[in-house]
Design a protein around this nucleic acid. Sequence first.
DNA 1: GCCGCCCGTGCAACCGGTTCCACTGGTACC
DNA 2: GGTACCAGTGGAACCGGTTGCACGGGCGGC
Lengths: 334, 334
Amino acid sequence: MVTLADVARRAGVSKSTASRALSDGRVSAATREHVLRIAAELHYVASPAAVSLATGRTGTIGAIVPAFDTWYTATLIRGIAHAALRHDFDLLLFELGEHGEHRDRAFDHFRRRRHVDAVFSANFALTRREVGALRDLGIPVGAIGGPTPGIRTWCLDDEAAGRLATQHLLGRGHRDILFAGGRPEEPLAMYVAEEARHAGYLSALRSAGLAPRPRRALLPTVAAAKEDAAAAFAADDRPRAVVAASDEIAMGYVLAAREAGLSVPADVSVVGVDDHPHAAAFDLTTVQQDPAEQGRLLIDWLAGEIDEPSGERQHTALAPVLVARGSVGPAPAA
Amino acid sequence: MVTLADVARRAGVSKSTASRALSDGRVSAATREHVLRIAAELHYVASPAAVSLATGRTGTIGAIVPAFDTWYTATLIRGIAHAALRHDFDLLLFELGEHGEHRDRAFDHFRRRRHVDAVFSANFALTRREVGALRDLGIPVGAIGGPTPGIRTWCLDDEAAGRLATQHLLGRGHRDILFAGGRPEEPLAMYVAEEARHAGYLSALRSAGLAPRPRRALLPTVAAAKEDAAAAFAADDRPRAVVAASDEIAMGYVLAAREAGLSVPADVSVVGVDDHPHAAAFDLTTVQQDPAEQGRLLIDWLAGEIDEPSGERQHTALAPVLVARGSVGPAPAA
DNA sequence: GCCGCCCGTGCAACCGGTTCCACTGGTACC
DNA sequence: GGTACCAGTGGAACCGGTTGCACGGGCGGC
């Protein structure tokens, strides 16, 4: 392995001069060029461990994420990995486990191994304790998720998304609209988001002077939604219009509708949230969000913060966009 | 930040003794216990940079993965993250980009920053050059994917999976079976896998003395499959039985069938491969694989290899399992 | 009772960089 | 012409661990 000393010796300068030439210390232009050429010839690469030991910088960003075999988290991480690479940071992944079983270890982990320059959490709601643990690390901290006091955060404006979806149905004349999704007792951000989307739904109905239906709470999976929908469609007052808290839930409702012999959108209109990659094949009208873009925003900010901390803590709510497809039709004649 | 010197001073011993007490060097039991207590009191944690500089070990495993907003890759990474945590390794993620645009950088990256104890690639086919680049790192290397000379690999026995799916249809009396999927010109493992599944399909038909239909090549997404299926179902000799190279393709076929007014399985039988989380909601008969388990196997092996290299290089083909649901029916009467 | 071995410990070198400080030589300014 | 300053460079300390080697003391074997 070729070291800085090798480069220095070969270039006929001291280690310090070689080091300065390779970073951006004060050296004459001629020396710098010479050292750089030698370094290139020797294929010299600085040892990250040594750099890290000397500078305290690690060139790595830590991620704390829940089990990410969901479209949302996986796409988010894709955006994050991409942006991190652009800033020349490595990405260190800590996963909370399928049922959050490693959650306790996560925060201790980054404290113990102080080998990241910044940390973020994504897609789950931090407890006050956890917020404190992250801030105690003394490095920049961000999060993808709902507004969280003390941390810079980004996420879709979920309330606006719920409102937008509901208003879209109202605009087609629907007056009796069901909201499907959410298990508020669970602390995952997924449910925090669904809660906010539900609030948007309520607000839209209230503005229109309409009464909500009782909310149908369920796990945010296609399978769970389908089962729930089957029950809903079997009832006497089966829903004619549904705001689903996510596209996966919407897909479950569409599948169940077809199985119940109902046509979408003639017999029932459905709006989702996400613009999941499968949404187009379901011809699903939905409220779009772009997790990869959210990840980019987060990393760009963290990279800047590592350079010179601003200590900002505010929340950024990203504007939702409605994507109209074929799963919404006019309300049935009264 | 409390250092080893602090612990040593407080314990009244030298740095070396403290170090040995904390690892497993030779120290008297009394000294060890004493040092450990002091270290705990002081919440001492070794600096990973210093350890890494001194030992060459980093406690990190590097991952090279394609854009992982697919179910397969995301689930694989979940299994890997879980297993790595169990072995007390960190996971460093390198993502190839949505269209493989960072692929060239990936291999150089791990060479330059020599800060991982092992590397693996997942879910794409390595070129001979890339295999060489990985092996040149001088650390254990593994891969999730097809057999690759020179590297220890794991993956589903894709040929057996294709055969199993086809035989399942043959067993219900089908004689005219279509295979949907695969774009062999692309180098992603996805297509390597589809190629092998197609080979299994051909082999099953050959054994039964039947002729294959011309293969329908398409991108492995629900949307692409749906579009392709719409064309297939509009033809005069529309297929009555389909082996899809993946569940997402199968879902596209099911959606298209319904839209064409065809009933599954009465008018057309469909078998997928994967057991995707949405498969149950589609009532899809499929050949199961468990990416998380594959990830576990990989990491367990790598962790052992880091400890004491065996230099093994063989391929492990994992046996497929058929999950029978409702998307397959008997062949139509001749 | 003496020799030799081994256990437990400390000293110091080392891993591979960065950076403070001192030094030199040249230039600008008075 | 002398002084002040500054650019450019080298020496050496330092980051925080690990580990080879030397040393002292206790104990077993003859």
